[in-house]
Design a binder for these strands. Structure first.
Length: 664
RNA sequence: GCCAAAAUAGCUCAGGGGUAGAGCAGCUCACUCGUAAUGAGCAGGUCGUGAGUUCGAAUCUCACUUUUGGCUCCA
């Protein structure tokens, strides 16, 4: 039973493949390129082929003209067509072979190690091992040294095709390889690749000789645990991640890029900009500080304004709801482990993990007529989910959060129009938040094999979604069979300034939850009979908490003026002008802007430095000249200077920046 | 939840079996200053929590908690 928004609110992808946005603009791209991260082929025959294909395709696309090795706006816009044979890509081969070299290095250290798989991935590779002892990053130096030796040995990479039986003999002491041999489909040949002393079951391709690898252009990055074949019932293996490039310069650039990511980490920014904090004895719960909460409120009010223009009504439903309700909705059966439960006078209650049941309860108050539809009900409800400890991550994945959640109760005929309105709303909101159409990826998930409802209903529902996208001019990727069992859905993914993907918005058609068997919502139709409304679950931002995290990382903390917790700071050139500075700050703050005066003991230079580091959009430097002439000297956080702007002009200036939601 | 690593001052980090150290931030004082750090001084920590080993533990051992990186999950 899956109600609500599926993965859209909690899913975050730190280092996702960067290709799907590209694929949406490449009509001739093969269908598999459309499949998102996590859709790695797990079927027996696939072997890790899915991951391979995706990785190499991504690799190719990322470097359309050999420029930036990872995804940038430039590289994205220059991509013209997919490669015919993605596996031929040189970086793909380099990374694949480097993985084998690493496996040999590890086997040199641990001859008894069991080896699993070692595919190339975005920007690098990994290999999974079953090792006799714990590994730490201190071991990297030794492994890397072995790898350098192997690479410098200029060994040929040789391929041989053998029978299944021979393969099993070769790998009789490698249980994981034996499993993989069995997983190769009948019609595919079994191939081995050998480099130096290391032979691996592998479909390739690889570089021809280790001289094609650069011993200065790879680096081991981290150690992680990973379940064998991605299944949590299987044993946990030791995975070593590394990165490999054609030359040391690319490696250096990539490591710089990683540093840049670290600088933009929202957790770091949250602390440095005094936005929020966490406490050890309350994991997954955010303490919002004033500045962070200012961003939060601003964003929330932005949502309010946006949806109210589309006729949404805002409601509020209880945080604690009886277990019986969750049983009827179907959530208890499937999600009880992830719900916080409480008890009062022998009755069990649960903290709400989502708002939809509450909205149905409101819908059911009073008799509803078809004239009441579509009814768009929104709520910023505090939801609580007991996310597993290992999944928590800053404000991107928390246990307490609020969604820009709403449910649209409508007739089936109204679905198309409602989805159209929603797409329009979403596009506008994303644009306001700095994500143009080129940064939006739409995924359209159609009927799964196991589903409820007749095909005619599915036809109509899917057509409604497709028409709505077409009308809105949004291209979408088709994800056949990935819809919820109760209805098709659209998922909206944002591509941020660093090319990373964040799934945020969604709209899902749900015939089930309002049905008689579940929460039993009804309305009186034109025909005088009782009907069940269709329910559309929808969100634009997803969780506000997570979305703020995304914004922080996207902008590196330098939020657009309208979202900045402090929009301007008045800095007197000397203490003599403190009074004037304070008066100016008050004058501006009285008009509704978030303006402060810095009257501290520091010298002007240091104040500028401090507020620049705090990403304050405008610093208004005032001295005698400005106070006498009623002007300001603007210094932006980007070091732009506008001197002698009359105060009145600055008011219009900042007003304009806020109205247009300008970055600066 | 699983695998691994980490936890020392508000922050970033050094140290390391004999009752703790720097820079920045903070506080105090001085400085009347024009676009990215004025100077001096002071204060600040039960070294995540709880056990154990030891004459002695921040340091070694174990457990727990949290965080980080992955894996799994994500209504």
């Amino acid at each position: 039973m899956r109600f609500g928004f599926g993965r859209s609110f909690s899913r975050w992808e730190k280092n996702p493949p960067v290709f799907s946005s590209l694929c949406s603009r490449i009509p001739e791209a093969p269908w598999w390129a459309y499949r998102g991260p996590g859709s790695q082929d797990e079927d027996a025959g696939g072997f890790f082929a899915g991951a391979h294909r995706l990785a190499c395709f991504a690799t190719k696309l990322q470097r359309p003209n050999g420029s930036s090795p990872w995804c940038t706006e430039e590289s994205m816009s220059t991509v013209q067509s997919p490669v015919q044979d993605p596996k031929a890509d040189k970086l793909y081969k380099i990374r694949h072979t480097t993985a084998h070299v690493m496996a040999e290095a590890v086997l040199r250290m641990f001859p008894d190690a069991k080896i699993a798989i070692g595919p190339p991935i975005d920007n690098g590779f990994y290999y999974d091992f079953d090792l006799p002892r714990k590994l730490s990053e201190d071991d990297f130096e030794t492994i890397e040294e072995h790898m350098r030796q192997i690479i410098q040995g200029k060994h040929d990479m040789t391929r041989e095709v053998i029978s299944r039986n021979d393969a099993k003999k070769r790998f009789h002491d490698q249980p994981y390889k034996l499993e993989l041999v069995d997983a190769i489909p009948e019609h595919e040949e079994v191939s081995l690749y050998t480099v130096d002393t290391f032979t691996d079951l592998c479909r390739g391709p690889h570089v021809e000789n280790t001289r094609d690898l650069n011993w200065k252009a790879f680096k081991l990055l981290r150690i992680a645990g990973a379940y064998w074949r991605g299944n949590s019932d299987n044993p946990m293996l030791t995975r070593i991640y590394g990165t490999a490039w054609e030359d040391p310069k690319q490696l250096r650039e990539y490591l710089e890029h990683l540093k840049e990511l670290e600088k933009r980490d929202h957790r770091r920014l949250g602390r440095e900009l005094d936005l929020f904090h966490f406490e050890d004895d309350n994991p997954g719960q955010i303490f919002w500080h004033h500045k962070g909460w200012t961003i939060y409120r601003t964003l929330q009010n932005f949502v309010r304004e946006s949806i109210s223009r589309q006729g949404y009504q805002e409601v509020n439903t209880p945080s604690v709801m009886p277990k019986t309700l969750w049983e009827r909705s179907g959530h208890w059966e499937k999600y009880k482990e992830h719900m916080f439960v409480t008890e009062s006078e022998k009755r069990h209650f649960a903290l709400k993990p989502m708002n939809c049941p509450g909205h149905i309860e409101i819908f059911k108050q009073g008799l509803k007529s078809y004239r009441d539809l579509p009814l768009r009900m929104a709520e910023f409800g505090s939801c609580v989910r007991n996310e597993s400890s290992g999944a928590l991550h800053g404000i991107l994945r928390v246990r307490g959060f609020v969604q820009d959640d709403a449910h649209i109760f409508c007739t089936e005929e109204q679905i198309s129009d409602e989805v159209g309105l929603f797409v329009q709303l979403l596009k506008g909101m994303y644009a306001d938040l700095g994500f143009g159409e080129e940064s939006i990826i739409v995924k359209f998930s159609t009927r799964p094999d196991v589903r409820v409802g007749d095909d005619a209903t599915w036809d109509r529902a899917e057509a409604a979604l497709a028409t709505a996208c077409d009308n809105a001019g949004l291209a979408y990727e088709l994800a056949p069979g990935e819809g919820a069992f109760y209805g098709p859905k659209l998922e909206f993914t944002l591509v941020d300034a660093l090319g990373r993907h964040w799934q945020c918005g969604t709209i899902q058609v749900d015939y089930q939850l309002p049905s008689k068997q579940r929460l039993d919502a009804g309305y009186i139709g034109e025909d005088g009979n009782r009907h069940t409304p269709v329910m559309l679950h929808r969100a634009v931002l997803g969780s506000l908490e997570r979305f703020i995290g995304i914004l922080l990382e996207n902008y590196g903390g330098a939020l657009p003026v309208w979202l900045s917790p402090v929009q301007a700071v008045v800095i007197p050139v000397a203490p003599t002008f403190n009074e004037g500075a304070q008066a100016l700050a008050k004058e501006l703050a009285d008009l509704g802007w978030r303006v402060e005066a810095d009257l501290g003991d520091e010298r002007m230079n240091n104040k500028i430095r401090i507020h620049q580091a705090q990403k304050v959009p405008y610093m208004l430097v005032v001295g005698e000249n400005e106070l006498v002439n009623r002007t300001v000297a603007i210094r932006t956080r980007k070091n732009d200077r506008i001197n002698d702007m009359p105060v009145e002009e600055f008011k219009a200036y900042i007003q304009q920046k806020i109205l247009t939601k300008a970055e600066l």
